[in-house]
């Protein structure tokens, strides 16, 4: 097999893993850290994409639209936490039902607001050549984006006072309150952060996936599985599953067929959950 083909396969499998990690990071925080199953995750991703698209159309440079999109989805996330999620902590199935309903409402709101097909715009694109092969440049940039995102969230959650408060508020809410942490406010912020990360994913994926009301669905399933397989050490675990499952599926798809790639993803997921019902990181001695 030609060396240029192998190099492109390797690079694009890394970008596949990066895309999965970016899409799953918000879930890693909300589900992995807080134990809340947010079935509206894909709609937050969609809202991030629409926010970035609308803002860019209004004349703001695309790069600047990303932080604005994150701020908007965080704000919506905070409202959702205060109105819905905060009343349902510890009630897993009720949260699932509530966020599922929310996802339907948000999806239809997007159809009402933006119509069934929203005109997209030209976004920065470039490509590189490796031997006989050409690769889109933007997905390669996403590898760097995913690494930086992971490091920042990791540092935020482990090295800052907020990070400690956030983990305390979820693990021992009463004790956290007893030592003066306003746990409900901290939880609001953590949930909003997860939603903001989903919005970030939607905004940075916009150049490769057009904004549509149901765009998040395709990411949701694999993101959920990556986070579930990762287990309690949410951040490091998800990074590992994204590389193993996302990257592995991409290599399989390149060498065999796309169907084989999908089969790889779901079979490895099933086997891992069978061997490690609590996730692969259940026995790790790490915090995140």
């Amino acid at each position: 097999m030609e060396i240029d083909f192998l190099v492109t396969v390797l690079l694009s499998s890394l970008s596949s893993a990066a895309i999965l990690l970016i899409a799953a990071m918000g879930l890693a925080v909300v589900f992995g850290l807080m134990g809340v199953i947010n079935l509206a995750h894909s709609e937050f991703l969609m809202m991030g994409a629409y926010a970035a698209l609308t803002i860019t159309k209004a004349g703001v440079p695309y790069l600047l639209s990303i932080p604005i999109a994150v701020a908007i989805t965080m704000a919506i996330g905070a409202v959702v936490e205060i109105l819905i999620i905060s009343r349902l902590y510890g009630r897993l199935f009720d949260t699932m039902l509530a966020t599922w309903g929310l996802s339907m409402v948000l999806l239809q709101l997007a159809v009402l607001l933006f119509g069934t097909a929203t005109p997209s715009i030209n976004l920065p694109q470039f490509n590189i050549s490796i031997g006989d092969y050409q690769l889109a440049g933007y997905p390669l940039i996403l590898i760097g984006v995913a690494v930086i995102m992971l490091i920042l969230i990791y540092l935020l959650m482990t090295k800052t006072t907020y990070g400690m408060q956030a983990r305390a508020s979820i693990q021992e809410p009463e004790m956290a309150q007893a030592i003066g942490i306003e746990s409900s406010r901290v939880n609001t912020f953590t949930f909003a952060l997860g939603c903001g990360l989903a919005g970030f994913a939607g905004a940075v994926l916009l150049p490769i996936i057009p904004a549509t009301p149901s765009m998040g669905m395709a990411f949701a399933v694999k993101s959920f599985l990556a986070v579930v397989v990762a287990g309690p050490v949410a951040l490091t675990g998800t990074a590992l599953t994204a590389i193993g499952l996302g990257g592995g599926a991409s290599i399989t798809a390149s060498l065999l067929t796309s169907v084989a790639g999908e089969v790889f993803f779901f079979i490895i997921t099933a086997v891992l959950l069978w061997r490690y019902p609590m996730g692969i990181s259940a026995k790790w001695r790490r915090k995140l």
């Binding site: 690769l135 997905p139 395709a218 694999k222 390149s254």
Partner: peptide, 20 residues
């Protein structure tokens, strides 16, 4: 020929095979 599940969002494997 390459057949893709409806959940696929990353097309680089297909794009490489086309170039090949």
């Amino acid at each position: 020929e390459d057949f893709l599940a409806l959940t696929v969002t990353d097309y680089s494997p297909t794009i490489q095979k086309i170039q090949r």
